[in-house]
């Protein structure tokens, strides 16, 4: 098959030939068996591709109908479970299950509260002129690799202890790493200051106490967070639970 013939056949099948061309093609088709075969193959290929790729809304609608009918005709099986009498041992298992569920609701361990309320701040470095070290620290911090983040942040903090951003995330990392005395030093300074991290620092300190089951100090710090600040709602919620 020549390239010309291939294109001509495609145009013929696509209805893209003018009348004269079309007549001419039909004449050729009568005697050219290779061309006949090609036209047949082309049509078959097109059918099969269309079956796969056509945007067929009718088919989508049919599928929806079938799905509905499936639920109607096949789903009732699931409700046909046999009724089984409660054997004594099942009773005891039920009692045990209720106890376990109760234990979960009561949840005497407070670590879960910590996890639930832990600082989920993402460290965002968007200010201009930041060093790439800070970017690196942010990446570690956001991947919860606090040990690695702390190393870099310690350096930056040493250079510029007045930078609130560095201070806050350094303090937060230390909290996560349970180096609480150091963390508190840094964060308390922030909380006493006037930076944007003032109340985030207070919240982080509160949670660090919660982590160590010191509810009194936790409450004390939560109460320092005033209404209208970002952490207020979470702080109040947590206060109620304590």
């Amino acid at each position: 098959m020549t390239e010309d013939k291939i294109l001509l056949a495609a145009r013929y099948i696509g209805g893209d030939l003018d009348r004269a061309e079309s007549e001419q093609f039909k004449q050729k088709l009568l005697t050219d068996t290779e061309l006949q075969q090609y036209v047949a193959d082309y049509k078959r290929a097109e059918e099969n591709l269309k079956m796969h790729f056509a945007d067929d809304q009718q088919r989508d609608q049919l599928q929806a109908t079938l799905q509905k009918l499936n639920q109607q005709y096949f789903a009732e099986d699931k409700t046909e479970h046999k009724v089984v009498s409660l054997k004594p041992y099942i009773k005891w298992i039920s009692v045990a299950a209720v106890l376990v569920i109760g234990l979960f609701i009561w949840s005497p361990w407070n670590n879960d509260l910590y996890k639930q309320y832990a600082n989920d701040n993402k460290m965002l470095v968007t200010e201009r002129g930041q060093t790439s070290e800070l970017d690196k620290a942010a990446a570690f911090y956001n991947h919860q690799e606090f040990d690695k983040a702390a190393v870099i942040l310690a350096e930056l903090y040493k250079k510029d202890s007045e930078n609130a951003l560095t201070a806050f995330y350094y303090g937060s990392s230390l909290t996560e790493l349970n180096q609480l005395t150091k963390a508190h030093n840094i964060l308390e300074k922030l909380a006493a200051g006037n930076s944007v991290y003032k109340f985030d620092a207070a919240y982080t300190i509160a949670l660090s106490y919660l982590k160590n089951n010191d509810k009194v100090n936790c409450k004390l710090w939560l109460e320092k967070i005033p209404a209208g600040t970002a952490k207020y709602e979470k702080a109040q919620e947590l206060l109620k639970k304590l």
């Binding site: 269309k50 067929d56 088919r59 049919l62 079938l66 799905q67 499936n70």
Partner: peptide, 20 residues
Amino acid sequence: DAADILQEALVDIYNQAKYK
């Protein structure tokens, strides 16, 4: 499984009626 099979069969029949 039965529901899937019936649905598939009906869609196959649809496809072949429409495109073939």
